[in-house]
Amino acid sequence: MRVDDWLKDSEEVGPSWLTVDLAIFTLRDDQLMVLLIERGLDPFNGMPAMPGGYVQKDETLRDGALRELAEEAGIDGSQLHLEQFGTYADPGRDPRGRVVTVAYLALGPNLPTPVGGTDAARAFWAPAARLEDGALRLAFDHQTILTEALEEVRRKLEYTAVATAFCGETFTLRDLRTVYEVIWGQPLDPSNFRRKVLNTPGFVQPTGDQWLPPTGRPAALYRRGHAWLLNPPLLRAATSGQRG
């Protein structure tokens, strides 16, 4: 259901509310991590959940998402890659009433330790793998939202330059390859990856500088190029139950 349709029909279905929820991913210690809060209020008091909350009447959806990120986790989202990826409106998704939420992806490099605030008892990074193995039980329908958000990130890595959102302003090709390997969960041949990246117009741009490791050979530094859509795309290898 589109948000504008919901707004038009809200008087007919009874009291309704609009919220934003944030699927926030980063890489820490070569692991894909998702930001969660521990709810400090009912419903689902004490359970982990996505950061988010009600949109105020005088703010845009994006402004509401940035405010909730700052209030509930102490993170400034203004420098993150932030985009809408879905709307969730099942009637029973929130026991308080009819609540429609607009879900956002927020991606950034090595984001800091979060600090819980407002109705979040605490905020913390959790390995995204725990979403898929069922180790985490989340409030509301946040398990579904985050699972779909994770697949959206994996898909976007194939067709867009979003992988650079997980890197710093400058990065090596090894840094970029690590993003793909961690998020896709599969090793990539370094030579093939280098060839594909450098042969994809506008994907990355050399800075002319080098990273000098304590030992070993220097590595060229790059920054994100001008292209967003990748042509040709970088496709995942086929795995069981997944297309290539």
Rank of each mutant, 00 (worst) to 15 (best):
F44H: 05
Q56A: 07
L32W: 01
W17Q: 01
Q210E: 12
T200A: 11
P95W: 10
E158L: 10
R174Q: 12
D76H: 12
T239C: 08
A89F: 14
R217H: 12
T26E: 02
P114D: 09
D29G: 06
W17D: 05
P91K: 07
G92E: 06
F25K: 00
Y104G: 06
P206V: 09
L173D: 02
N231I: 15
A106D: 05
R93G: 10
L66V: 00
T170A: 09
I75E: 06
E59A: 05
T118A: 07
D30W: 08
A219E: 15
L173H: 05
L136I: 02
N231P: 11
L66E: 03
G53M: 02
E169M: 11
E72R: 02
Q79H: 14
Q56S: 13
L150T: 04
P109S: 07
L61H: 12
H142G: 10
L229Y: 15
D209H: 03
F193L: 03
L111M: 06
D9A: 13
A89C: 12
A161N: 14
D175Y: 03
R154H: 08
W211M: 06
P95Y: 01
G14K: 04
G116P: 15
E72A: 09
R224W: 04
L173W: 10
P112T: 06
M1L: 12
L111P: 08
G202K: 02
R28I: 02
F85D: 05
T207P: 14
G185K: 00
A65Q: 04
G74C: 07
M1W: 14
E132L: 11
V34P: 02
S10D: 07
E152M: 11
L157F: 14
M50G: 11
Q186V: 14
T215C: 11
A106P: 02
Y222C: 02
E72G: 07
L131W: 07
F25D: 00
V3R: 11
H142C: 13
N231K: 08
E181D: 09
P218C: 08
A89M: 04
A135C: 08
A120Y: 04
A237S: 08
F44M: 01
N110S: 07
W184L: 03
G64F: 03
R28T: 00
A237R: 00
T87L: 07
D189E: 10
F124C: 03
F85R: 01
R96I: 09
Y222R: 00
G46D: 05
E152H: 10
R98V: 11
A49L: 06
T200I: 08
G92M: 04
V99L: 06
R130E: 14
L7G: 10
G208W: 03
A135P: 14
G134E: 09
F171W: 02
R137W: 15
T101H: 15
G108I: 09
V179Y: 01
T26M: 01
W228L: 05
A123L: 08
E158K: 09
A220N: 09
G117K: 03
E152K: 07
Q186N: 05
G241L: 05
P127T: 11
L18G: 08
Q84F: 15
A106S: 01
R2F: 12
A103V: 09
V102F: 07
C167I: 01
P51C: 00
P109M: 01
D63C: 02
T87E: 15
A149N: 01
